[in-house]
């Protein structure tokens, strides 16, 4: 008994250590952000006079307003389309069991392992030929394609588990496939769809290589993460401001995560195990 209690305490202590380790970079950024501009903060040190206005200054200096808007636009352009076409494909593969579905799924599965660096070079020339370089579309379109393997797999996994009797019942009531999809299947798939939307939102927000290559000059048309790279280049001589700006850039997704943490963690774990 006492030994298991010791294990329980030990486990709790370890958990706290692990939490501290995870939060360390954020704590470090936070304390650095509060130091006066023009100083060189060391390690984790709380400044004598915390400079809260650094956050406001970083917001203004880094011109974060337009970048926030740009990220939101990219998310709005990417996520709904991704979710809709992945749901349709998942329905086709999981419920309608289309001819050649296994082969198609295999094709999508290849994409799950594909590193982005494997295709970034031709993507650049492809989008250049569409005259889209330096526009938000240059991020949105490839992202939709890149999200397909996971998204289709995820939605298929949902539809496979929905009994086909539902479709058949609706069918016998005279519903068309299109009506069955929107009227019966999509409402049932809502939890899976919401999870997918959350995950792809966060992935879009954090995408770095695509905007770096495909939006080389218009930093204001990048995602937050892409802009953060440029931000680092510009303000690395000003550690407190860089730290404050980094935290501001992180904040929106952390908030989204905290609100939807249950769905996000579950989806990430399930998606991973199923994949």
């Amino acid at each position: 008994m006492s030994s298991s209690r010791a294990t329980a305490y030990g486990g709790r202590v370890m958990l706290v250590v692990l939490m501290f380790w995870t939060l360390l970079p954020f704590i470090s950024l936070f304390t650095a952000a509060l130091h006066p501009v023009g100083t060189f903060p060391t390690g984790l040190s709380w400044p004598v006079h915390p400079q809260w206005q650094n956050f406001i200054n970083a917001w203004n200096v880094a011109n974060l307003g337009p970048i926030l808007k740009s990220s939101a636009l990219i998310v709005l352009g990417t996520v709904p389309i991704t979710v809709v076409i992945a749901t349709m494909a998942g329905f086709a593969l999981g419920q309608l069991r289309v001819f050649g579905g296994r082969a198609v799924m295999l094709l999508f599965l290849i994409g799950l392992t594909l590193p982005l660096e494997g295709i970034i070079i031709p993507l650049y020339y492809e989008l250049n030929s569409f005259n889209l370089i330096d526009t938000r579309m240059a991020v949105i379109l490839p992202l939709i394609g890149l999200f397909m393997p996971f998204s289709v797999y995820w939605m298929r996994a949902h539809f496979v588990n929905v009994p086909t009797s539902l479709t058949e019942a609706a069918r016998s009531d005279g519903a068309t496939t299109w009506q069955i999809f929107w009227g019966v299947q999509v409402p049932l798939a809502r939890p899976a769809i919401i999870s997918l939307a959350i995950i792809t939102t966060i992935w879009t927000w954090n995408q770095f290589l695509l905007p770096l290559v495909l939006v080389p000059t218009n930093v204001d048309s990048r995602t937050m993460a892409g802009a953060l790279g440029a931000f680092q280049g510009q303000y690395s001589d000003n550690i407190p401001l860089l730290a404050a700006g980094s935290l501001l850039i992180l904040a929106p997704m952390v908030i989204v995560y905290i609100v939807f943490q249950r769905q996000f963690i579950r989806a990430m774990l399930q998606g991973a195990v199923k994949g």
């Binding site: 250049n128 005259n131 330096d134 080389p216 000059t217 280049g233 510009q234 690395s236």
Partner: peptide
């Protein structure tokens, strides 16, 4: 504006691009 490091790395991309 960009740090010189980025300018060196990205100049060909930027100069070749649409904008």
């Amino acid at each position: 504006t960009n740090a010189y490091a980025e300018i060196t790395t990205n100049a060909p991309l930027v100069l070749a691009g649409k904008n």
